[in-house]
Amino acid sequence: MVISMTGYGRGKAENDHVRVTVEIKTVNHRFCEYNIRMPRQLLFLEDKVKKKANEYIRRGRGEIFITVEGEGLVSKELKFDWDIADQFVSLIDTVQEKYQFTSQVTLQDLLKLETVFSVEEVPAENDEVEWLLLQALTSALEDVKRMRVQEGQELAYDLEKHKEKLAAIAQHVKQYAPSVVRAYKDRLAMKLNELTDGLIEESRLVTEAAIFADKCDINEELTRLESHLLQFAETLKQKDPIGRKLDFLVQEMNREVNTIGSKGNDSLITKEVVEMKSLLEKMKEQVQNIE
């Protein structure tokens, strides 16, 4: 199955106190990686988010945005800094002793110190928030998967068309190639007849034609090209991620077509090679976006 690496999905889950929204955008990438943006209080769930995403995404870069609205993420605790208080009282005692002050440190004096009392936010272990997050994440991932599958079907359709055109051109070149040698032999015979007044040895003509045929023989390249096209068609039907294999096959086909172009030694073959390279370039661009 052809699956695109490009997709978008959105999911939401909520209860009476909390609403969790997850948005996911995926793009093509050589490997599988994620950039997750979520509230600091929920960072302990990051590994679970990645593990869940891996059930739906096998290759590509995913941008995952998680927002949480409502109460229950944190609890607030009042903290008293005993060390600062001890230092304050000790310092006051020292000052009183030195300057002979008689006033004493009171609670009100401590309350005036902003650094002694503080309010800290402590992440709350809330199983319900975690459950809502995973529900919203699953919904978003299912959206992404549907979009990636749909776009993958369109890519497969286009690739199949390009493959068929490429195969048809290759078959035409294969049928046409022998005529290149015959045409060369006829041109050579005509030229030699002009230069030798018709006194030409048939063996020499056959030898020269054989040398030319060997130089411009493209049967091996055409056979390999046909084999790559067959593998390409079979790969499109596989269920596992196929993007890298398809990319490799396109590179190999491009290599064979380049060799055909350099050995073909014929204007029509050159024209067909240009068309094949154009098709392969389109296939390469599309393959780059397949999982």
Rank of each mutant, 00 (worst) to 15 (best):
M1Q: 06
V2H: 08
V2S: 13
I3G: 00
S4G: 10
G7Y: 02
K12V: 15
H17V: 05
R19D: 01
V20F: 13
T21I: 14
T21C: 06
E23D: 15
K25N: 14
N28C: 11
N28P: 15
R30H: 13
R30S: 14
N35P: 01
Q41I: 02
F44G: 10
L45G: 08
V49F: 13
K50P: 05
K51I: 03
A53L: 08
Y56W: 11
Y56P: 02
I57K: 06
R58S: 13
R61I: 10
I64H: 10
F65P: 00
F65S: 15
I66H: 11
I66R: 07
E69N: 13
G70M: 06
G70K: 08
G72F: 02
K76G: 00
E77Q: 13
A85I: 08
A85F: 06
D86V: 03
F88G: 07
D93M: 12
D93F: 13
T94W: 00
Q96W: 02
E97R: 14
Y99V: 11
Q100M: 02
L107K: 08
T115C: 01
S118Y: 06
S118D: 09
E121N: 15
P123S: 04
V129I: 15
E130C: 05
L132Q: 02
L134K: 04
L134E: 08
Q135N: 07
Q135V: 05
L137H: 04
L137W: 08
E142P: 00
M147T: 01
V149W: 05
Q150L: 01
E151S: 02
Q153R: 14
L159R: 12
E160V: 11
E160G: 07
H162Q: 12
K163L: 15
E164H: 13
I169D: 01
K174P: 00
V181I: 15
Y184G: 01
R187A: 12
L188V: 14
L192D: 08
E194M: 00
E194I: 01
G198A: 09
E208K: 02
E208F: 06
A210H: 03
I211A: 11
C216L: 12
D217M: 09
D217G: 06
D217K: 07
I218W: 00
N219S: 14
E220K: 01
T223E: 10
E226K: 03
Q231N: 13
D240H: 09
I242A: 10
R244A: 07
F248S: 04
F248V: 05
F248R: 01
L249F: 05
V250H: 07
M253D: 04
R255K: 10
R255M: 10
G264F: 04
G264M: 02
S267V: 15
I269R: 10
T270Q: 12
E272T: 08
V273E: 03
L279Y: 12
L280P: 09
E281L: 06
K282Q: 15
M283R: 11
M283P: 03
K284T: 04
Q286L: 11
Q288V: 03
Q288L: 07
Q288D: 05
